[in-house]
Design a protein around this nucleic acid. Structure first.
Lengths: 237, 237
DNA sequence: ATACATTTGTGCGTATGTATG
DNA sequence: GCATACATACGCACAAATGTA
């Protein structure tokens, strides 16, 4: 499946990250000439980048590369669901597997997955590290009917990347809930963190294109200087 | 300014909130017939609702009203920038003004506002309450060149509502940073909270249509059961 | 201050592809 | 196999904001 506006969008993103476009992008007219597509297609592609907060656009003037205001600390950009990243720069993450089980869906999980109770799900608990150290404790659940096979070996690297490549599926959208979680004794034992330490909790449900949820996870993020960034467009004036 | 797709979008939102549409929306064809607009306009309008997580859409099947999975605790929906709300239901908020000053922009503020240092800004510190009690401590800054007049009286109610009505401007988009803030002695004195209590910190910069930032704020949210919800669409596959 | 060209924003119509039921 | 419904793509026209001469 190779959609024109997504191809164009990806190419534009690459050109921004690789500093081909430093400040201003070419006009829509120039871009539709370059890519040999219609204006709608160009605008679809640019709309994606705009919604992700990568570019600004000013009527009568043009499209401009967005520079993030904050640059200190560990900033996780939620706009781009292509793995952990620090404002545009992807992070290399490896994991220590704490649990790898196949369990029947509880009432709660069956609600999240929109499936009958008892349906099988993978339950994977991981500690996630970068070069800097421990990032998060993750409790992830995957619906086995959608993801028939997983292994501990796979879970040491990126589960999502494996899924996308082997099952040729992709995330359509996600629901995110952010709150504060204070570390319990059990979690402290697992992570070495102190009991009662406040952490950022991110609960996440990921959906396929057909609206089927396939992944639910709760993660606790430990870095003190961490913040979660996202960009909002107000389309209802 | 009365744009067709925004009018349609607003009308659809109302019909969802007022339970005219409980589960399924009419098809695109039926809607363009009803509103007497083109298919692009209908899809623009529906796209807004989709991006905000209000509806799901399934190719070949139709548009469906989204039911939030979590219903417990105080959930703040960030998608819709029309004041504080609890998953769709607006909250009545009133404020106690702690500070109301006009100050010159510091280096930091001048970066946020993209203005020269020393430009005048309103600085307003408020405690925000609902019937349930204290919600947040807010430190808000408004660029005086964009918002020439504010008063303490106005700040007791919704500042945004006043601005939108009197200056006929609206938020185009916003940058949000979420992190954890532990309450200091000074803040504890102001709020009655205990020193060291972890709170959700939301930093926010709001932009006008011409990309001019007009508001920067840092707020600390106190409810224990609070979580921040937002919906992500993955447009890059 | 005015006029004009450029550039993005909105809106309509049409054709074809793809998923669902 | 078929009808329905959403997804993508093209092309065109005009409005509105911006930048420049």
């Amino acid at each position: 499946m190779t959609l024109k506006y997504q191809e164009v969008a990806k190419d534009l993103v690459n050109k921004i990250f690789s500093k081909v476009y430093i400040d201003k992008l070419p006009s829509e007219g120039a871009l539709l000439e370059e890519y040999q597509v219609s204006r709608n297609t160009i605008r679809n592609a640019l709309g994606i980048l705009y919604n992700q907060g990568l570019i600004r656009r000013i009527q009568g003037s043009g499209y401009f590369v967005n520079k993030p205001l904050h640059n200190e600390g560990f900033i996780m950009n939620m706009a781009n669901k292509v793995g952990l990243n620090h404002v545009g720069n992807p992070l290399i993450v490896h994991s220590k597997i704490l649990k790898f089980e196949i369990i029947p869906a509880s009432e709660e999980l069956s609600r999240y997955f929109n499936c009958p109770m008892g349906d099988l799900v993978y339950y994977i608990q991981r500690l996630r590290y970068t070069d800097e150290g421990l990032i998060s404790l993750e409790n992830a659940y995957y619906l086995k009917s959608v993801i028939p096979y997983l292994s501990e070996e796979i879970c040491k690297e990126s589960i999502f990347q494996f899924i996308f490549q082997h099952y040729n599926i992709s995330i359509q959208h996600a629901d995110e809930y952010i709150s504060i979680h204070t570390i319990t004794q059990e979690e402290a034992d697992l992570t070495g963190a102190t009991v009662g330490k406040p952490t950022i909790q991110i609960e996440e449900i990921n959906y396929l294109k057909n609206e089927q949820p396939f992944n639910y996870s709760v993660s606790y993020y430990f870095p003190e200087d961490m913040s979660v960034y996202f960009h909002l467009t107000n389309q209802l004036h």
